[in-house]
Design a protein around this nucleic acid. Structure first.
Length: 475
RNA sequence: GGGCCGUUAGCUCAACGGCAGAGCAGGGCACUCUUAAUGCCAAGGUUGGAGGUUCAAAUCCUCCACGGCCUACCA
């Protein structure tokens, strides 16, 4: 049948061509549909045909552009012969330009009485059904353009995504931060704990890695006397795909020279409450089946305290931690059991994270799991770092930046000795050399934009907030 | 990587061992204020793919592909 429809449509195109009609149109200055008012004369607008209702000598079309939808009323003896010829060959999905006077029908619908019709693009494929729309999740992701044409809620999500990023820029620019961009292809992957994508440069005859985080380059800029900087862009991690993970994702990273972790906490609070107000006009919001209140102040709790509340009085006591994991029915590999932080992380994800509905800062992390963060002055074991959870999602990660090159090298080597699986891990001597020239003390913050957008749009999957999430190619 | 579920017309869905169906979209006819327009007529299928069981398979079994959710990995 699709072949049949296609054939019929190609036939229409041939007929139109024979009459010398331009099937695919030219520039057409138009008014946005949403701004069209009753009583306006000779309005020119354009959009995609979403419905056609023939009613004898008159017909009604619904056309849609990026701002809205409007009805077009065609009286057959009101338009030229050529336009009538075009009109008879229109299909749902075609893009047309129209010109006419605006009025209301007796049922109250804002309508353009057509005077002139211009064909701007003929479609060969049928759009999904007008009433039920496009539901098939796979087609929605593979052919996102159809999803965007048919599902208004999906458009709204992506409009909000665009706004979130605009407002972040507005907010940070107003606070004196400047936006920079740093390499996405790194000779040595760093700045996070993840496996990278590998690519190859032919002329240089060397492997490059798609960045897993911009962190180490942004901090080179701190060395270079850029003091308040941020970058909003893609990072890439060669890991599993899930409702919370896409191989490429968008992060905000922000650095403030002469600041610290505490300053980052304040910025995070004011940025996210600003976004809540701007995007949803409210600090109260729903996420999935949860009610979230973004009102300040947000809860702050020490990393160690969250475990003692869960019944682990001393997280360094491996026996207690292992026993707790067992009680909670958490499956552990032999490798996990060798690393108390792995076990704690699993307990955290299973038992604690699902309870972090309202914004919660968890702070003061062990140095072992924070290789780029600065220790507390009175306790070298713990670092000035926080993670922020909202709606049970991890939204932000921040710390006072380690600017001691000797200590940094020691921690890098330490991490390499501990992990066996991550073969791409190397010490970025170039970064350490930069630190050796002197980096100011600084606060740094990372926010996962996709997850933040999920939260602000009440989306259950990261694929709902990324235009083209990665899928296995079909066929 | 493992488990569960799904895949039927362009789209949304029925049929659940016995002739593959409907609505929308598309084609034809009628109708000059309709809006899920309406009425009538005709058309549209390798039931994701390959095997198997059976007199008979969309339906039961096996394998494969793609997707979703959970889990694992990972921030």
């Amino acid at each position: 049948m699709s072949e049949e429809i296609r054939r019929q449509r190609i036939e229409k195109i041939e007929e139109l061509k024979k009459e010398g009609i331009d099937i695919y149109g030219r520039a057409f200055p138009k008014k946005e549909i949403a701004s069209i008012k009753e009583g306006e004369a000779d309005v020119k607008t354009a959009g995609r045909i979403m419905a056609i209702r023939h009613h004898g000598g008159s017909s009604f079309l619904d056309i849609k552009d990026s701002t809205g939808k409007i009805q077009i009323y065609i009286k057959k003896n009101n338009i030229s012969e050529e336009e009538l010829f075009i009109f008879k060959r229109l299909d749902i999905g075609d893009i047309i330009g129209v010109e006419g006077d605006v009025f209301r029908t007796k049922t109250g619908e804002l309508t353009i009485l057509l005077k002139h019709l211009t064909l701007l693009s003929k479609s060969l494929n049928t759009l999904p059904e007008k009433w039920h729309g496009l539901k098939d999740v796979e087609i929605r992701f593979r052919k996102r353009y159809l999803d965007l044409i048919m599902n208004e809620e999906v458009r709204e999500v992506f409009k909000k995504r665009v706004k979130v990023i605009q407002y972040i820029r507005e907010f940070l620019n107003s606070k004196g931060f400047i936006e920079v961009d740093t390499p996405m292809m790194h000779p040595i992957p760093g700045g996070a704990e993840a496996r990278p994508f590998i690519t190859y440069h032919n002329t240089l005859e060397m492997n490059l890695y798609l960045r897993i985080a911009p962190e180490l380059y942004l901090k080179r800029l701190l060395v270079g006397n850029f003091e308040k900087i941020y970058e909003i862009n893609r990072s890439f991690r060669n890991e599993g795909i899930s409702p919370l993970h896409n191989p490429e994702f968008t992060m905000l990273e922000l650095y403030s020279a002469y600041g610290d972790c505490r300053e980052m906490m304040e910025i995070t609070e004011s940025l996210i409450t600003f976004l809540g107000e701007k995007i949803n006009n409210s600090l109260a919001m729903d996420y999935q089946d949860k009610k979230i209140d973004l009102s300040l102040p947000w809860k702050r709790i020490k990393w160690a305290d969250i475990f003692s509340e869960a019944g682990i009085a001393n997280w360094r006591d491996k026996e207690v931690v292992l026993k707790k994991a067992e009680e909670e029915g958490i499956e552990l590999t032999e490798e996990d059991k060798g690393n108390v932080f792995e076990v704690l992380d699993k307990i955290f994800k299973k038992k604690i994270q699902p309870k972090l509905v309202n914004p919660t800062f968890i702070y003061q992390y062990p140095v072992e799991i924070s290789p780029l963060a600065k220790s507390y002055p009175d306790s070298v074991d713990m670092v000035e770092r926080f993670e922020l959870f909202i709606g049970c999602l991890e939204i932000a990660n921040a710390y006072s930046e380690l600017n001691d090159p000797v200590e940094q090298r020691r921690r890098f080597l330490d991490a390499i000795n501990k992990t066996t699986g991550n073969k791409e891990k190397m010490v970025d001597e170039d970064y350490i050399e930069a630190l050796e020239y002197g980096m100011p003390p600084a606060g740094g913050l990372g926010i996962g934009i996709d997850r933040l957008v999920m939260l602000l749009t009440n989306s259950s999957s990261i694929r709902e907030v990324i235009f083209f999430p990665l899928l296995r190619p079909k066929k």
